[in-house]
Design a protein around this nucleic acid. Sequence first.
DNA 1: ATTATCTATTAAATCGATTTCCAAAAAGCG
DNA 2: CGCTTTTTGGAAATCGATTTAATAGATAAT
Lengths: 341, 341
Amino acid sequence: MRSKRVTIYDIAKELGVSASYVSKALNDHPVISKKVRDTVRKKATELNYKHNSHAANLRQGSSKTIGVVVPHINQSFFSEAIAGIEEVCFQNNHSLIICQSHESFKHECKAIDTLIHQNVDCILISISAETKSCEHLENIKKHDIGLIQFDRYIDQLEGYRVVNDNLETSYNVTKVLFQQGYKRIAYLGGPDHTTIFRNRKDGFLMALKESGFSIPYDFIVTDSLSKEKTIEIVAELLSSKEPPDAFLTVSDHQSLAILEIAASKGIKIPEQLGIFGFANEAFTNIIKPSLSSVDQKSKELGKRAAKIYFENILPGNESTLENQEEVIKCDIIIRESSMRI
Amino acid sequence: MRSKRVTIYDIAKELGVSASYVSKALNDHPVISKKVRDTVRKKATELNYKHNSHAANLRQGSSKTIGVVVPHINQSFFSEAIAGIEEVCFQNNHSLIICQSHESFKHECKAIDTLIHQNVDCILISISAETKSCEHLENIKKHDIGLIQFDRYIDQLEGYRVVNDNLETSYNVTKVLFQQGYKRIAYLGGPDHTTIFRNRKDGFLMALKESGFSIPYDFIVTDSLSKEKTIEIVAELLSSKEPPDAFLTVSDHQSLAILEIAASKGIKIPEQLGIFGFANEAFTNIIKPSLSSVDQKSKELGKRAAKIYFENILPGNESTLENQEEVIKCDIIIRESSMRI
DNA sequence: ATTATCTATTAAATCGATTTCCAAAAAGCG
DNA sequence: CGCTTTTTGGAAATCGATTTAATAGATAAT
């Protein structure tokens, strides 16, 4: 039933010229006059011709498609980043294939496999929380596919990456908390094997050291990304003899959980307890008290990552960036939850 | 520099067999014995062979890719729907190309053009707020590409669609508000030319008629999707002589704006003013008072839409669904903002 | 007028996997 | 053992656009 497809040969036959001529006309090849080009164009739409990119890509060896792998597309940080990537790809006439790892290493590997088979020209990835090794990423390179890491990355892997100034931001946020008079700050982080979480912890520790204050070991928690874990840990910390007077977290969802616990215990925020989140999720500005957070410029980050492909990797545009790491500065957004002066 | 690609011919040469044999082996063709298949497989990974889907798709005439067009990927309703679509596509070994219309008709047309050129097998679309006509969608069909509308759709366009029971839900929500003793309900809707918004309005009007209550004409507002417009209208309505005692909206963002205005005016919710939203955004459960809303089962909706392609359109699986419209029932979630009894 | 230069146009090769059709070899049968 | 049937394997065509190399024709230069 499916009507057979209209090809450039059909157009060529109708116009009494050769297929190669039609091809050139459709591609704005300089040797073709405008008159001919328009005639061909008109005939093409008339016949409802549809360019077959498989044929073209097979011939040209490129798919004009780039792949993205993120933990979850429905987290605002990632969906914003993807929006940025999409914008740049659209401008450059490339399409996007999006996959989710669901924070699982296995899923991540499968997604990468799919993308390799789909013949993408480049893969942009923000690794899952479980990912510790990078053979699967090395495999991408082996297949001559571009690779750009963004946000969450593995530092032992050479190559392009776009990241936030996590260490500095974490350091600065901690200092902001000290300035507000908080002295016993607890830190709720992510898995230590993920560089950005390690960096954020280091920034915190650096500011802490500089301040001269000391805090108990159990105020430094790694790998508390899930809500359940956070609730458990925070409840315990808050009911201890000398509880923390502030929390610095690596996600707004953690901070939200703290806010809820504090509300249920009648702890006043920010007077008795300061809270600082990360990611500047949409809800941070809506809730009462509003939540201080860090704007990671996710859309900009996505844009920059995509631009690296088009400006430095795309065959024909290769230009070795001396520095393969691009850093995007975060904005620290101070709201009610950390403002007690 | 780019090393030339490994093809089945290379594998064939190494093994001393023919390329067609290798192809069959890699595709689990029944005439190939397991032994041979495994040998070929092993050699393939050894040579770091990478299947070229362009060649395969050119030959087979399918791209195993489906395209999605939504207004914004970073709105939770859509990102959830996409997550559902992605899940089904992944299971069926297809990839996804995602485009945004940014609520603009022009962008939507361009996105569709891109997808047609990319040779997708099917397009899933939720139209932009500006979209009133459907020639651009007809064009998809002309190119023999499957078309499935989801959530926002044009009803004069024949074909598959997956939607919520918007009319019924709106009707039921309105009745819930009446049961709570609200009598002067104002309705803030979306553009009338978009079917789902028209349906929601009709559901509201139906319940209103049934109730026997009457409300002024200016309580029925169409096309108030933007936050600015909502604020303007709500401020005016609330300061009128006989203000509404409840608002029914078509998005949680509208409801949020109302909540903020009410807070600034010292209007008590839900005692003096009831509010009911739509979409069950993540923040509805976080804010105080929590916001009653409608769970549209967005992920399920996305899954169903994608399944229609694989179960009814995919060549080989064609099966004419007698009913081309699939309806997903919403859940009405009653929270503090509408519960005064 | 003759050669050189340029333009307009095309035939044919190419990209890599799939698939049809055919040949050869092996197995089965009387 | 001779014949048929089945299995195993391969040659070659195919998908559709691009691109190289070549040709015919036109124009310019000497």
